[in-house]
Design a protein around this nucleic acid. Structure first.
Lengths: 132, 132
DNA sequence: CGGAATCCCACTAGATACTG
DNA sequence: CAGTATCTAGTGGGATTCCG
């Protein structure tokens, strides 16, 4: 499993842009996706409630990101209740729920290392000012 | 550990943009970072060799991404050998190496699920054409 | 060889206004 | 309530040129 096209970044060369890691990052690396996935964790959530939970998101980006997740099959059951006024609920699919573990691994790394990263950045920027 | 500012997406509300997961994705979610990290996995690599390993990267983006990694402290030992012509080698730090596990978790999820994601996208797009 | 500087384009995402 | 449509500023990243 070493050199097939589109191969892994870590299991073998080459380091192609269509490697699995890059492809998943293309889906979840944007500004809002993981926040929405997090906000959907505890079950069905209405559009307006989602908008409240995900601080700072615009209506456009919420709609757009939800549509992309629906298309991916990561979020399903966009349920439209034909009441008046209309009620729409969103919930994660099983596939979406399996994303939790890898995301949590990433999150734990962040919690452990992000302080060091910030410190390193500060040191780097200070050195920058000294050297020129 | 529920409602502290900048809190986790999964360990508690709110779902703020400065949550750890979002912050790490801001660092590694771009087009080239994980490819470069992968290309640096087996030790010291020269600039020109990196450029060959990471297919399609421009000189500007390679330099820019390496500088960002260096600043983060994820990649260190940018070693300049003052020969003629000059030789510069890059290698991951220990912190950078610890990124492997979370990235591999993400990669494995991708390998398992990306086929389903593509199938779901196709189905979604076909339904789109039917429904108008 | 290993960059830095500049120009330029495509795309992301926010703001705003309107609708079933 | 839950969207859609349009406009626009900001940014990521490629191509090109020049430098120690």
């Amino acid at each position: 499993m070493v050199t097939t096209s589109g191969g892994s970044v870590f299991y073998g060369s080459p380091y192609r842009a269509d490697c699995p890691t890059r492809r998943i990052l293309d889906r979840i690396g944007d500004r809002w996706t993981v926040l929405i996935v997090g906000a959907l964790w505890d079950g069905d959530v209405r559009f307006s409630e989602l908008r409240r939970r995900v601080e700072g998101i615009s209506q456009k980006m919420l709609t757009q990101t939800l549509r992309a997740l629906e298309r991916d099959g990561l979020l399903v059951r966009r349920t439209v209740h034909p009441e008046v006024p209309v009620r729409v609920e969103y919930a994660l699919t099983e596939a979406g729920r399996t994303l939790r573990e890898p995301l949590r691994a990433l999150e734990e790394w962040s919690i452990v290392h992000l302080t060091d990263v910030s410190a390193s950045q500060d040191a780097y920027d200070r050195a920058d000012r000294r050297d020129g």
